[in-house]
Structures are given as structure tokens and as C-alpha cells.
């Protein structure tokens, strides 16, 4: 796709549209809908060291405020991912971002080392919106020191780009972002869902919160920022890109339309060709004026 390609640190993406973790399975569920290799990339369901069954029912519920979910980070575990899911993704040429989570720095490192043994993983995204059990259950992502510690440890165990997914719960999200940059993160993704009592709330307002955070982060760090939060159309995606995001992730929009990310991708390409511009030129366009 001409004019759509973007660079996230060392990583070249065919276009700026990825799918968000937990909203796209392992990318293998889309055969009948579209070729996921055409996307900028997919972020896998969060992977842990051991498989996790997840929470008992009910896990989802829709309220006038948005979608509540309590999936419980159910996933097949990093080993099964490497031996069962990844070979197919690799064969199809999909750009894979492995989203990982753990409750200790040591486990984050173990997962990273397991992934390091495999070809076909293009970046690692740290879900730091989970409690660190070794320091009394404080979320990694809420504290600049904890976030930087986990980022540095993962950074040292892989040659691949490391992205850190910002938690909107952080008191000083800019401090957390800067700490991760300093610890060697190649990019920041923002934001994870907002949580209330271990229930994630995808409110309709999430996009506005995310837009503000992305704007501020882009001003605070010099590494690329990848935007997530309520992006359902190419217009939403361009708002974030013009605010400074280098790429976007489509989350819950894929639930109601499996082709949502494709529509966003195609819409951006059409916009660029109609306006004889490139995505690279649009990044941060709203900032310079």
C-alpha cells in the first residue's frame, strides 16, 4: 500500500493499522473475512507463562455506559502459542506483536526468552496493567519505577522491539512513559482499558480520554506512540495520527464487525491517495499548526 507505510523504531509496518490485544484472538479466526497479513500487524491475546482458564461466567455485559468485561486474561499460554498458533501466522506472513503479561519481572523475562527462540514475532508489547505480586500487588503500569524495571529487564532479554502499553490508571502517565523510554522501550501504546473493581469498562468516552493521553505522551517522549481506545473508523484513526500517533490499534470495534480493522486500513489509504499525501506526513500534522 503506497504512502501507508510507517516506521515504529526499527520496525517497518506496511500501514499504521494494527488490531488490539484481546480483541482479535490469535489472528487465526479471520480466514473467511480478510487476509490479516495485509494489516500493519496484530497484537495477540495477552500471553502468560502458563495457560489461564479465565474467570467464570458472566464475563461480559453491556450497560448504557459501554461494555463491561471480566475475561480474566484467559489465554493458551506462551508455549502453546509458540508451537500451535505462531507457525501458521509465520507461514502466512502476518506481522505479529506478542502481548505478554505476568505478575513478576522474572516471569515477564521468562516469557520473553521463550518468544526469543521463535521466528515470526516482530515486537513484544508489555501489558503492565497487572499487579506485581512481589511488591504487594501494585500495578506495574501505575508506578514509574516498576514500569521502568520491567521494561529494562525485558529490553535486556530480547533483540526485538519492546512496546509498553500504558495504563490509564497511572497517576502520572507522562512520568511512566518517560521512565519506560529511558529504560529502553521502542514505543508506547496508549491506552489500555479503564478499570473499575477488576472490571474493564470500554466506555464510549474512552476515545476522548485516549486522545488526550496520546497528545500529551507525544509531547513528552521522543519514541513513537501507538494509539488505542475506541477507534472504530478511519476518521477516528486519522484524529489520533494527526495528534501524533505513529500507528493505531483497533480494539472492540472488531467484535461487531470482524472487518473493522480492514475498513480503517482501506479508509486511510483512500484518504491518502485522494489527498496526495502519505501517512508519514500526517503524523502529528495537528501539532505543527
Amino acid at each position: 500500500m503506497n504512502g501507508s507505510n510507517v516506521r515504529i523504531g526499527e520496525l517497518d509496518l506496511a500501514n499504521p493499522v494494527l488490531t488490539a490485544s484481546g480483541c482479535f484472538g490469535y489472528g487465526l479466526e479471520y480466514d473467511e473475512f480478510f487476509d490479516v497479513a495485509t494489516l500493519g500487524g496484530i497484537c495477540t491475546k495477552g500471553l502468560s507463562l502458563e495457560p489461564r482458564l479465565g474467570n467464570p461466567p458472566e464475563r461480559i455485559c453491556e450497560t448504557p455506559a459501554g461494555m463491561l468485561n471480566a475475561i480474566g486474561l484467559a489465554n493458551v499460554g506462551v508455549e502453546n502459542f509458540c508451537t500451535v498458533k505462531l507457525p501458521t501466522l509465520r507461514e502466512r506472513g502476518v506481522t505479529v506483536v506478542a502481548n505478554i503479561f505476568a505478575s513478576s519481572v522474572a516471569d515477564f523475562v521468562k516469557i520473553t526468552e521463550r518468544l526469543e527462540a521463535e521466528d515470526g514475532v516482530h515486537a513484544i508489547e508489555l501489558n503492565v496493567s497487572c499487579p506485581n505480586v512481589t511488591v504487594g500487588g501494585i500495578e506495574f503500569g501505575k508506578d514509574p519505577k516498576l514500569a521502568s524495571e520491567v521494561t529494562r529487564a525485558v529490553r535486556q532479554s530480547t533483540k526485538r522491539p519492546v512496546w509498553v502499553k500504558m495504563s490509564p490508571e497511572a497517576g502520572d502517565i507522562l512520568a511512566v512513559g518517560r521512565a519506560c523510554e529511558e529504560a529502553g522501550a521502542d514505543a508506547l501504546t496508549a491506552i489500555n482499558t479503564i478499570r473499575g473493581m477488576s472490571i474493564d469498562i470500554n466506555t464510549r468516552r474512552l476515545r476522548l480520554v485516549a486522545l488526550r493521553i496520546v497528545w500529551d505522551l507525544c509531547g513528552a517522549v521522543s519514541i513513537p506512540v501507538i494509539a488505542i481506545g475506541g477507534i472504530a473508523t478511519w476518521q477516528h484513526a486519522l484524529e489520533f495520527i494527526m495528534a501524533g500517533a505513529s500507528a493505531v490499534q483497533v480494539g472492540t470495534a472488531s467484535f461487531s464487525d470482524p472487518c473493522a480493522a480492514k475498513h480503517v486500513m482501506d479508509g486511510i489509504a483512500a484518504f491518502c491517495s485522494q489527498n496526495e499525501t502519505t501517512v508519514a506526513d500526517l503524523i502529528g500534522a495537528a501539532r505543527s499548526s
Binding site: G25, E29, L53, N55, E58, I60, M67
Partner: peptide, 23 residues
């Protein structure tokens, strides 16, 4: 019958407990 968000296997929102203790 359970609530569903996606209907095609990606949200993991529709677990049904099984007799072997899983879903």
C-alpha cells in the same frame, strides 16, 4: 445460551463450565 460480544471466538466472553472443571 450466554451473552456474547463477538460470536466467532475472539473475545472469550462466552465460557460455559464443563464437567472436567474447564470451560
Amino acid at each position: 445460551e450466554t451473552p456474547m460480544a463477538c460470536g466467532y471466538g475472539v473475545c472469550l466472553g462466552c465460557p460455559v463450565p464443563t464437567t472436567d472443571g474447564g470451560y
